[in-house]
Each structure stands twice: as C-alpha cells, then as structure tokens.
Nucleic acid binder design. Sequence first.
DNA 1: CATGAATGAGTCTTCATTCAT
DNA 2: GATGAATGAAGACTCATTCAT
Lengths: 208, 208, 208, 208
Amino acid sequence: MKRDTAESKERILEAAEAVFAETGFDGARVDEIAKRAGVNKALIYYYFDSKDAILDALFEELIKKGRQVQNRTLADFPDVRQDDIFRQVFDGFVDFALQNRRLIKVALAESMKADPKHAILLKMGEQIIDTEIENIKQAYESRGGVFPYERRDLLVTEFFTGVLPIFNFAAFYDEWMAYYSMSEAELKAYFFDAFKSTHLASHLSRYK
Amino acid sequence: MKRDTAESKERILEAAEAVFAETGFDGARVDEIAKRAGVNKALIYYYFDSKDAILDALFEELIKKGRQVQNRTLADFPDVRQDDIFRQVFDGFVDFALQNRRLIKVALAESMKADPKHAILLKMGEQIIDTEIENIKQAYESRGGVFPYERRDLLVTEFFTGVLPIFNFAAFYDEWMAYYSMSEAELKAYFFDAFKSTHLASHLSRYK
Amino acid sequence: MKRDTAESKERILEAAEAVFAETGFDGARVDEIAKRAGVNKALIYYYFDSKDAILDALFEELIKKGRQVQNRTLADFPDVRQDDIFRQVFDGFVDFALQNRRLIKVALAESMKADPKHAILLKMGEQIIDTEIENIKQAYESRGGVFPYERRDLLVTEFFTGVLPIFNFAAFYDEWMAYYSMSEAELKAYFFDAFKSTHLASHLSRYK
Amino acid sequence: MKRDTAESKERILEAAEAVFAETGFDGARVDEIAKRAGVNKALIYYYFDSKDAILDALFEELIKKGRQVQNRTLADFPDVRQDDIFRQVFDGFVDFALQNRRLIKVALAESMKADPKHAILLKMGEQIIDTEIENIKQAYESRGGVFPYERRDLLVTEFFTGVLPIFNFAAFYDEWMAYYSMSEAELKAYFFDAFKSTHLASHLSRYK
DNA sequence: CATGAATGAGTCTTCATTCAT
DNA sequence: GATGAATGAAGACTCATTCAT
C-alpha cells in the first residue's frame, strides 16, 4: 500500500513537528504522530530509531535552516552602517522564527531541562550570535577601527534581548492571537515597534 | 518516616517544583517526587487530587507571590518620574524571577502548549502589565495629563520585551552559567546592562 | 484488592518458572505469567525490574538450593569409600534435579546462547564439581594418600557424564513420559540402572 | 546485491542456523538473518513460508544427515564384536554432533518446550537408537543368539547416557572452551576418556 | 529473484492513581 | 496521616509477515 513514495518520512516529520509543538515532546504520543501522518506506527520506527531520534532530525534541520537564513542575510546586508540595515536583518530573523515557530517552541521547552543534552537553544544562540559578532567585527576592522566589545557581554545581551525575544515572540504567536483576539498584522506591528525601540535602539547606539 | 508532621505537604510541593523544573511537567514522575520528598507516593494523593493539582497549587502560589511583589514594588516606588525608579522596579522583578525560576521554567513550557488551559504565562503577564499600566496611568492623571498609550500596544511591548526577557533570563539562568562557565555576578551584570539599554531605555523615552 | 499479603511475589516466581519452562525464556510472555499468577501485570514490575530480573531471581534461588542440597549430601555421606555412597549421593542429585526440572530446562536452554552472561549452567556445574572434587580430595588426604586427578579432567568428565545427564534426565522427564507413555517409576528405574552402569561405574573404578 | 544466484537460499539457511544457535529460535530475528545472509528480508519469505519453516528445513536436513552418518557407520562397522568398534562408531557420532552443533543446540532447546510439536530430539533419538538396536539385534541373531534386552530399557539408557551426552558435548563445546580457556584438543581428549569409561564401558559389558 | 516500504498484532514496560490497613 | 501493595490504561518499541514494483 505504497503512497507517493518516500514521502512518508516527510509526512512523519511534519506530523511530529506539529504534535511536539502542541503537546510538548514528553506529552507527544507516537500513536498520534502516526495517525496525523496517515502512516502505520511501525513505519515511524522503520525510519527513526526512537521518538528522540525524530526530534533530533527536526532540530538538525532547524539548525541547518537557521544557518542558511543567517548566511543569506549576511550576504544581502554586508554593510551594517546604514540605520535600516538592522531592521531588515531582524525582519529576516522574525520571518524565520515565525515559519519555524513550532520547533522553536519545542526547542525552548527542551532547552530548559536539566540534562544538558537538551541545550539546543544555547547551542543555536551561540552559533547565531558568534556569527553575528564576527560579521560586525569585520565591519569595524574594514573601516580601520577596533571592535570594542567582549564576546561574553555580547552573548548575554544578544541572547536575552535579541534572540530570545524573537524566539518567544514566535513561540507565543498563536497563543497570543487566540488569547487577545489579535490579528497577525496588529501583533506583528506592535512587536516590531517594541523590538525597534528596545533591541534595535540598543544596537544603533552601540555599534556606530 | 514521620517528620515534623504536616510539613509533608510542603515537602511534596518543594520536591514537585524541583522535579517539574528539571524534567518538565510531562516528564516528571510522581514516584520521583515522592522519593525526593521522602514520603510515600500515596500520601501525595492524600494531599492532592492529581499530578495536575500539584502544579495548580504551585502556580497559584507563584501568582500570589507575583502579585505581592508587584504591590510591594508599587508601594515602594509610587512616583515613576525619577529616572532610576524603573531600574529599581525591574530589579525587584528580576529577583522575584530568579527566586522562582524553577516554576517559571514550567510556566514557560506549559504556556506554549496548544490547549489554552495551560496559558498561565499569558494570564500572569496580563495581570502584571495591566497593573503596571494602571499605575502609570494614575501617575499621568494625577498630574492632570492623559495617558497616551493603548493597552494592546503596551501589552505586546511589555510582554515580549519586558516580562519575557526577565522570565527567560531566570529560566535559563542555571543552564547559561553551566554552558558558559559564567558566574552569577558576571551573568547578572551583563543582563542588567542589556536590559537597561533596551527595555529600560524604551520606557524612559516613552513615559516622560 | 490485597491477597494473603506478600505472597504475590511468590506466586509470580512460581508462575514465571512454569511459563519459562513451557515456552523458553524468550517465548514466555509477561502477560501469561501475570495471568497464571493471578496478579496484575504491573505488579510484576513492582517486584521485578524486568523479565530478565525474574529469571535472575529464579536462578539465584536455584543455585542456593543446589548448594544446600550438596552441603547436606556431603554432611550425610562424609565417607566416600563405601560402594553405595555414590549411589546415594547421586540419588540426592536426581531428586534435586527432578524437583527443579522446570528451571533446569531454562538453565540448559539459556546456557547454550552465545552471550556468556547466560552461562549459568557452566557456573553451577563448576561449583558443584569443584565442591565434589574438594570433598574427594580430602577423603584421599585423610587416608594419607594423594588425590591423583587433575581438576580440568574431572570438570569435563563430571560435567558431561555426570551433571549433564542428570540435568537432561530432569529436563526431558515429562516430555519423555508423554512421548513414550512411560510411567515415572519405569523411567526412573531405567535411568538409575543406566546411570549406575555408566557414570557410577566410572566413579567406582576411578576413586578407590 | 546479486550473488551467484540461487545460492541465496543456502545463505539464508546458513545465516539462520547461526542466528538460531546464538540466540535461540525465539530470540532470533528475521531481520538479523537477512542481514547476515546479505539478502533482503522479503526474499526469505520468497523461499520460506515462515520463520518456523526455516527451522523445519534445517531440522529436516539435520535428520537426513544423521541418518546418512548412521548408515555409513553401520556399513563401515558391520561386526560389533570387536572391542574397538563401538569407539569408532561413537567417534563418528561425535564428529557429526560437532559439525552440526549449532543446530543441535536449537534442537535441544526446542525439544524441552511443552508443545510436543517441538520434540525433535526425542524423534531423532528414537530413530538413532532403534536403528542401533536393530543392528545389534541382527548381529546377535546372525550368530544364532537372542537379543536379550528390551527396547524401552535401551531407549532410556542410550538416550540419556549415550545420545544426550554427545549432543550436550557438542552443544556446550564452544561455551566450554571459552569458559575454561580450554583447547579443542584438550576438551576432546578428556571427553573421549570420560565417554569411554562410562557409556562405552557399559556397552562392552552389556553386549558381549 | 529481489527489494524498499508498509503493517497488524503484539510485547515489554511505565505511570498516574487507588485501596486496604 | 501514612504506607505497601495493587491496578487499568496506556506508552514506546518490536517483529513476523506482506505488498508493490
């Protein structure tokens, strides 16, 4: 009873992402994933070693996508001196976060667990911020200046006031709209203003 | 295995909070809670109707504490015109968040689930922000002015760039220190600077 | 719905022994054990960590019983010079083997598996034979003689022509009676004759 | 992954024999057999109806080989009066047993199960011993004598002190060498001595 | 002949919850 | 209050077997 061949694996990943996001990883049932994917439960174990392995596969994909988005963004906006550059860069991240908000939810929840093997968000954050730092540093140096900030300072600043707010925005996007009966447009507009007047302002004042 | 009697309930709550924080609510085992509390598993069901009820009790306490902190803060700093008032107010919130970071972790994770009955963080955020808004509004009006902001705008702004960063800071506090071998003092210092230059700056520019 | 208290564990072990013997360990179903023991399946896991652990417990008991039988036998028949002593000793072993034939079946089957952790029969055999050797050696020495046999030789001889035939006799006891419609008495009589004219004869000719 | 075509079936049987011996029939996985045979799992079901059918095929082959060995032996040693004839006959059986020790393991384990359909060893034993009896009887009669033993007596004697020790020797051959770090030569030498001084001695004393 | 994909029916194990004392 | 024992209802994972190509 084969389907559009080899697409089953994709359907499983898609279904798993949805179920994980809705119930959390531990709350997710493999049965439910199978049902949503429209496949036999055993087929899931044909493609993946375990429930954990499904999440690993999803996270790997997420990290890859994140890297791609960042690389593309850096290529598109090589000069960070213009005032509106940051805004565009962050727009890119917000779109990425929204598109992947289901997995970001799971990543947030899992990363708060005690076992450090779950620390995916810290790893992703580190990668994103280090790349960003490297880029800004090069901009400084290409102008003959010296990058005047410490990595550890920037990691904290960028993670807690840059990366996390965007990820949280994505993670609570749907719940927020449901809770406040707010439209996507309204929510996005408010958030962009908020982010601009906080994180972006800080960026512009810092990196001149 | 009897202790100072009746303190068992407290021990159960304490143990549950720890276990929930380490493994997430769904990942937590009642057996483990009993073991850590040093009580028989059945005793947990003598005091609580269900595993859910334990979390409910913890959340209720958290909300109560949150309200107290906010009330105390508002009482201590009735006049928000001074530049450093906000800083003190947020210091209060950060301390509160850190002290309750185990439950905040759980609240964050649970609030991202699809079922709206888990939306505790949205409720808490709404309460905190509405109270804050009310306070600022009164300050305006006591000076004969008119509060010029919309509630929905402020809810978004305060939630995603005020409440959530602080809660996330608390939630990732331990993991961050472990991941980056960073001391509490260093992490706190960086975070306060970051928060000051983002959220606080925005506040000061907005509410004159 | 408690029963005659704490007897459940015993019933589980008893049922497991029966099921393991009938179907082999891998063929045994925990459900079937629970059904036969008249207990809830989960109770099995209350007392034992796993299906494996049940077998371990049974084997441990078997080894303990084996040691007891051997010690008692050696106490009863300290002087091995009499012709009929060996017969009595072996009678003791045959009774022990028959009484524990269900577990001996499992031990035989498991001991043939590749993974050395299953080698229970080799361990039991070694223990039995070493004790026996030690006993015979002391008899020699108490008479001022020297025990003239090598351990490795005796291990092979005793294991393959002493221990194993008796264990096999026990293991195939029921199947044999069913297959040949033979009575217990007839089977035992033939086997005792056979054993006497083989292993016992060898013993008597060897240890003078 | 095609090989010299049609040899696949042979490879499957070979792999199955190995896996059955290592893990027992119930512990064996068809996947593992396929992997070891280097064929697709479905191909196994092209050649065999079921996992059971593979074992049946192997057992059938074993029984055929057993018959051949016995017939050849009887042809080679028609006159059983010579003292060393039995020794040669048993040597033949030991070689046969060692060469087929993997299947003998499985036969032993399966034959101890409750369901009589597994009683292959009893069937094999009966065939071997009846043939042997028939042969000895003819020797008696050709000399004008009368064969003075009962079939049921001989069945028990030969099975438990003849056939089974040899089969067990084969079944535990590898495990024994591993357990005691004993060489093949040493083990064989000890066993032959042991067998000679027990079963063979009995034979020689009985059939004059 | 051969294979990758698919599946129904288990199979062990877990877990929140309850009960008798 | 407190506990050891007990249980129903899942839960993750397995496995022999089949199917389409």
